[in-house]
Structures are given as C-alpha cells and as structure tokens.
Design a protein around this nucleic acid. Structure first.
Lengths: 226, 226
DNA sequence: ATTACTATTTCCCGAGTAA
DNA sequence: TTTACTCGGGAAATAGTAA
C-alpha cells in the first residue's frame, strides 16, 4: 500500500528520525524493509533530492533525519486517514414494520431492563419494541456493521428466579426525524434480517405505522469501530 | 507515497465506500486519481481478487465497496502513522552554562512575569535564569524544533510606564533529574544558540554549576506539533 | 455509455561492481 | 566495511481496441 519512498520515510520516522539523526546504513535499512541495498541507496538519494530527508556523512558513519517537508508528507497521509477513520459515516438501514409476539413489551416491563435502558439511553422507553424486517441486498451486511458498532451495553443479570440476557444498543434516527435506539438482544429468536427498535414514545402512533410500512434508520458509526 | 492500490482504496473509503456501495465508473475513478482508465480497471480487478473490495454490476451501473479486509488494510497504515504522530519524541539539547548580565533575574522580579510564570508553570520560579549556550551540529535545529513545540504562552502586556514582551515556554528535564522550563522570550538579545531556563529552585546550587559546565535538557515533543 | 483485454512503453528493482 | 554507479529483466502504466 505504501511506495518504497513512503515505507522508508515511515520507517525513519518510527525509528526516531524526526527528533534526531539516525545512524543507519543502507544495508541495515534494506534488511529491515526487505529490499535490496541498492534500492535503499537509490531511494535515499531520491528522498534527499526531494528535500524529505537530510543526510550527513560523519567520517564513515552516515546519519539520516527527516526534514520538516518529510514530516509534512507523512502528516498529510495521516490526516487523510484520520479523516476517514474519525469521521462518523452514516449507515442507513431500511425495512418493513411487522408485528411480533409482544416479547419486546414483555421484556421492557421487567424492572431490570426498564431501569437499565433508562440509565444507559437517557430516556424511559415506551413499553414495546418496533420490529423491522430489513430488505434488499447489502442490508444484512449493514446490520452486522451496525451491530458491531453498537456501543451501549446492557449487562446480563440473574436473580434467584431466572437469568436475564444482555443486549447491545446504538442510537439511530428513524425516518430522519425521531431519535430511537436499535436493540441487539443476546438471546433473540429473530433472524439476522430483523432489528428491534425502542424509543421514548410509541413509534407506531408517531408515524401512524401499520404492518408492512417502510421505515428507515440512520446510524452514525465511527469507522474505527468496524 | 501511496501505491496506486493504496490511493484507490483510500479514495473509495473517503467517498463513503466503507458504509455503502459507491456507484463509480473506472473512467471517473481514473479522472479523480489522474491515472488511466485502464489502470483503474486493472487495479480494481486486483483489489477485488485480493479481497479488499467487492464489486457488483447492477445492470449497467457498477458499484464498489470496501470489504472488512480492505478497511483493515487502511487501518493498519493509520495506526502506524498515529503511533508516529502521537507518541512524544524526546529531543535532547546540550550546552554549556554561562553568565548573563542578570536580565533574567531582572525580569523575574517584575510582578507581572513572576505571577504569570507561577500561574502557567505551576511553580514560583527562582529569581534568576540559567543561560545555556548550545553546542554541536544539529543543536540549533533542535532548538527551533523545541521552540515551535513550546506550548505555554506568556502574553505580552503593557502598563502606563512600559510594555512587557511575551514569551513561550516548554517543560524540560535538566540533567535527567530536575523539572525545569525553557523560556523563549519574544524580545531577547541572545542569539539562536542560547536558551534560558527557569526552575523553582536555584539550578546553579542544585547541580553545583560553574560557567562552562555542560548540562542537558530533555524535552518531550509531540511530532504533530512540529 | 461501460469494463477489460492485448500490445507497447516506461519505470523501477536488484545484481554486479567500482570507489 | 560503506555508498552508489550501470544495466538487464520484469513489473506496472498507458494506448489501442473489443465486447
């Protein structure tokens, strides 16, 4: 992915060639980067001519350090990549509403979950989940992406009666208007193309939804979490 | 600095190819990256074979997206660069102590400066500066580097009588033992090979220094500030 | 329009070797 | 030892063109 010039420049920077002069021979450099001594020599000459490094020959020992230009070159690449990895991308999920068997509502009225959701999401969830069946190519992959990025954790829990499975959530925007959360329950009988959504309000009322209506979910995901 | 594969992968990521399928032709891609259409086509084939991207031809329109592998590839480069730019490097300055004309002491007893230094550095400076003349090749460049990274600002100031010049400071470790600060005064009559150091204590006493004694200053600098 | 083949040129890596 | 030249082979880029 990096040219030889790039690899050498990066290697020199990693070795501390930013702050001080590195005593390194073309032979050593070639060994480290698994290239020939000749190539190392030639590329150093080119980097020097391009003003990206400076060399000095003190007696037999040669030393190398990056110039400001050389550091700038690396910095440019760094900022490009930084932008890619630190700018959230919007992933859009699309699917159709359908009715479940009311398990969502069942779980949400269990005090443990109700309390946890309110604590972690900052709202008291309406006691019912909206089931959405994703459609179209690529949707399941996107769902996996979103699940991977889901960063709000509801821990599993057990009391003397039974155990409660955990879940992961992530905030989303439904139909471009309403703040909701997608729930990925640890134990679910739904297949991978289904997601469950909760919100502080009744989403069916809010959007006048009937089974089969299409809805969209926009999720902001940082690529570094993928 | 990036190979064509790298440039194309980065471009696709920048265009949002992480989260969704991009509709982009080899002609457009070639234009954007200033390469030939043929090269764009060939490289896409290679990237696809390497498992870094996925393509789908929906009718005439072709779409491209990065695979997890492709994103991982970029992430590796990103983490290498991140390490380089976010790991502080230690810059070592070396020089000989000499006596000035007492201006350091003069300025440090001016209440404005005394107060400012204490506020910004977190210690009450001993009323006197230690003057150090840097020696050896590369030292002046290092000094410039350190000055550029100096991030503690003492603002200039004026009252009815006169104006007080500003300064920039940076923390350093003298002789590997004592926490000090290097002062880069805006107005100084010293040449570039001289730095002035202050500390909460009398450094001359602490290290039993006499004129001509050698001292070192270690400064931690984040490469991103250079 | 589009992608991608084949042919040609250009460029770059590394072997041999001088200094 | 060290760096860096010349040069031959091969990879990689573009041109031409088919589908």
């Amino acid at each position: 992915m990096l040219t030889i010039k790039g690899r050498i420049l990066l290697f020199l920077a990693e070795q501390g060639g930013i702050a001080r002069e590195l005593p390194i021979s073309t032979v050593k450099l070639a060994e480290e980067l698994k290239i020939s001594q000749q190539t190392a020599s030639r590329v150093l000459i080119e980097l020097e001519r391009a003003g990206l490094i400076e060399r000095a020959g003190i007696g037999r020992k040669h030393v190398i350090k990056l110039t400001e230009e050389g550091l700038k070159e690396l910095l440019e690449m760094y900022t490009s990549l930084k932008r890619v990895f630190e700018t959230p991308v919007e992933v859009e999920l699309e699917g159709y509403v359908f009715s479940g068997l009311g398990e969502g509502a069942y779980y949400l009225q269990i005090p443990y979950y109700a309390r946890k959701f309110e604590e972690k999401l900052g709202f008291k969830p309406y006691p019912g989940t909206l089931n959405i069946r994703l459609t179209g190519r690529d949707q399941v992959l996107r769902r996996l992406m979103v699940e991977k990025a889901a960063d709000i954790e509801i821990e599993s829990f057990s009391d003397e009666r039974r155990s409660y499975g955990g879940a992961k959530c992530i905030r989303a925007l439904m139909n471009g208007e309403e703040e909701v959360a997608i729930i990925f329950a640890e134990r679910t009988h739904y297949p991978k193309e289904v997601v469950e959504v909760i919100a502080p309000i009744c989403l069916r009322e809010r959007f006048k939804l009937r089974d089969g209506d299409k809805v969209t979910l926009k999720v902001r995901v940082s690529p570094i979490n993928l």
